[in-house]
C-alpha cells in the first residue's frame, strides 16, 4: 500500500503490481487503485495519470460507485 493518489478517483492506498527493470534498476512501477480499479504506470504522461492534469471527463466518483452499471444481469 502506498500513499500515492489515484489519478482517476483521487483515492489513496494504491498497490504496487509490478516494477519494470532495465540493467537491474527500476525504471517504472505499475500501480492499481483498489477503489476504482484504475491501473497505471508511473512513467506515463501527466495528462493520463496526474489528477491535476487529467481530463475530468474521465474521472470516477469514488463516493458513488453504485452509478456504474453491472453487465450480464440475470
Amino acid at each position: 500500500m502506498t500513499t500515492t493518489v489515484c489519478g482517476r478517483c483521487k483515492s489513496s492506498g494504491a498497490v504496487t503490481d509490478h516494477q519494470g527493470r532495465q540493467d537491474g534498476a527500476v525504471v517504472w512501477t505499475i500501480l492499481r487503485c483498489p477503489t476504482c480499479n484504475f491501473s497505471w504506470r508511473d512513467s506515463e504522461p501527466a495528462r493520463a495519470i496526474d489528477p491535476a492534469a487529467r481530463s475530468v471527463d474521465f474521472a470516477v466518483d469514488a463516493d458513488d460507485l453504485q452509478r456504474y452499471p453491472k453487465i450480464l444481469q440475470q
Binding site: 505499475i30 484504475f38 491501473s39 495528462r47 493520463a48 471527463d57 474521465f58
Partner: peptide, 16 residues
Amino acid sequence: YDVLPVYRINEYDGGF
C-alpha cells in the same frame, strides 16, 4: 505483468 509487455492502448483506458 511478468509475462506480457502491456501498455495503455488509448490514453484514457481504465487500465492495461
